[in-house]
Amino acid sequence: MLTHPTIDQLVKLGLAGMARAFTELQDNQSATALGHAEWLALLLDREATERSNRQLTARLRHARLRQRATIEDIDWRSPRGLDRTLMQRLIAGDWIDVPHNLIIEGPTGVGKSWLACALGNKACRDNRSVLYQRLPKLFAELALARGDGRHRKLMKRLGKVRLLILDDWGLEAFASEQRRDLLEIVEERYGRGSLLITSQIPVDRWHDIIGEPTIADAILDRIVHNAHHLKLKGDSLRRKLATPQPAA
């Protein structure tokens, strides 16, 4: 008798998960044996689960991860120099809370971007905010934003997230405005949020790629000294996947 008014009230209060659970329990004959406290516990658990799932969906949407990668799918068998002990620490995510940075270095095709997205996915699942950006595209967006008045807003967005992923670092030398933007990003995030950087270029060559020595010193001082370093090696996984396999 109270089914519909109760459901309507739950929905009005924004408790859609509880409303759905209430309907399912009403239709479940075995639920008649449950006491009031058990009913309430089941309703609350359903509401909490649905809210958590909605929040995760929102975090993943905001993160804009380039690849649908998860840590459960990491291929430990490929000979690319994955340090399993370090990876387990990185997967736990405490380095994001400190905050520290992470540099994933290695030749093209060894899975740098994929691992970055997998760690970003795990951070989202652990209730941490994440944003993925390819650095060349980010520099282009910042240049446009400077012209149409969105620059400050975009820089603020880059500074707020707990983990900012900068993919494809150093594909070409940085221009003057790019150096200044990068310095502002790392300065804003220093001590407040973590950076995850992927690069084909060894760290000892970053200074030359950044350019202006004084700015390069300032940028690298805020990135490298508190960074975990994951060096990958081996042949391109893309090439392996694209190579036809011999018939059995």
Rank of each mutant, 00 (worst) to 15 (best):
R46P: 08
E47R: 03
E47F: 02
A48D: 03
A48M: 05
T49W: 00
T49D: 02
R51C: 15
R51K: 09
R51I: 15
R51Q: 12
S52N: 13
S52M: 13
S52L: 13
S52C: 09
N53H: 08
R54N: 08
R54T: 03
R54M: 04
L56M: 03
L56F: 06
L56A: 04
L56E: 05
T57I: 05
T57S: 11
A58D: 01
A58H: 02
R59K: 15
R59H: 13
R59F: 13
R59I: 08
R59D: 00
L60Y: 13
R61F: 06
H62C: 05
A63H: 13
A63L: 10
A63P: 15
A63N: 12
R64Q: 12
R64E: 08
L65G: 04
L65F: 01
R66E: 00
Q67L: 14
R68Q: 13
A69M: 14
A69C: 09
T70A: 13
T70E: 10
I71A: 15
I71N: 05
E72H: 01
E72K: 08
E72A: 08
E72G: 07
D73I: 04
D73R: 15
I74S: 00
I74W: 02
I74F: 03
D75N: 13
D75R: 12
W76M: 11
W76R: 11
R77N: 11
R77T: 10
R77G: 05
S78D: 06
P79S: 07
